[in-house]
Amino acid sequence: MVDRGEDWRSAARGELLGLRSRPRGWGYRKGASPAVEPTCLACLGLLATRRPAGPESRDEAAAIVADAADWLADVQRPDGSLGAAGASSGPGWPTPLGLLLWRACGGREGPRRRGVEWLLREQGESWTSTTHASPVLGHDPRIVGWPWVDGTHSWLEPTATAVLALRAAGLGAHPRCVEGLRLILDRAIEAGGWNYGNKSAFGNALRPQPAPTGLALLALARQNARTAIVDRAIRYLQEVLPGIRACSSLGWGLLGLRAWDSAPAEADRWLAEAFQHASGRPDAAPKLALLLLAGGDHGTDLFE
């Protein structure tokens, strides 16, 4: 399949399609078992760079995406979650990505409903206000978001993806979603940006990272005013992304900037350079997916 012009996107799509695991889905690495997260990202990347209308619905990529969405429905667990390690085992943190893909593909109402119900039940462990008074922690551990693993604390990335999935399901005003946004704002690093979810420890401010920052900005877009926290995060990404060609960080970072109409004109060149770097590597699938998501015309639409 060829996109508009023979740019890096066409090559990335072709390579990504070639990396598909047999019989269905994508793994984190060539030869690895198919897993939910790389499958969802690959499909979203393909959808983000799809043609505007018409033939796409009949082409190979569209059929593969539809098949992958069906595979996710097949491996969905009875409780509604999608497992991280292997298709149906491990913690359920990739479930929001499955919901975003199903929403983008349309249909699959039953799996979507069960996935949303699981997501609304799932929550991170919160701690008491006494703990919050300790100078060891920089954030408010009373706020409930989403954990990576059931029975542990709430962290930035699973909370951001949960907020995105719930909003896409029309639940942006749900109290869980509102509290999730509050958690994201609470975990913002004073100097700008986010990391995995610790803004300081033992009184020392910790370092931000591009991918969590992009994800947080994506989650806050459309639901939060352009506050000083957002401005500082945008500035952080605009400062660091010119020197970063790591695909996941560049991809999520640019998606965050695009959600706030702040992506620089050079972004496409950065993505093309990152593609050159990632192409041919055994673990290229999730990397190419992120580049396509960030570089596609429909990338941010898939999260709205």
């Binding site: 997260e37 913690p91 693993v149």
Partner: peptide, 15 residues
């Protein structure tokens, strides 16, 4: 320990 199973920063081990 694989993050896909233990989270970041390996929350399960901390708990």
């Amino acid at each position: 320990m694989p993050g896909v199973y233990y989270g970041w920063p390996k929350n399960v081990l901390h708990f």
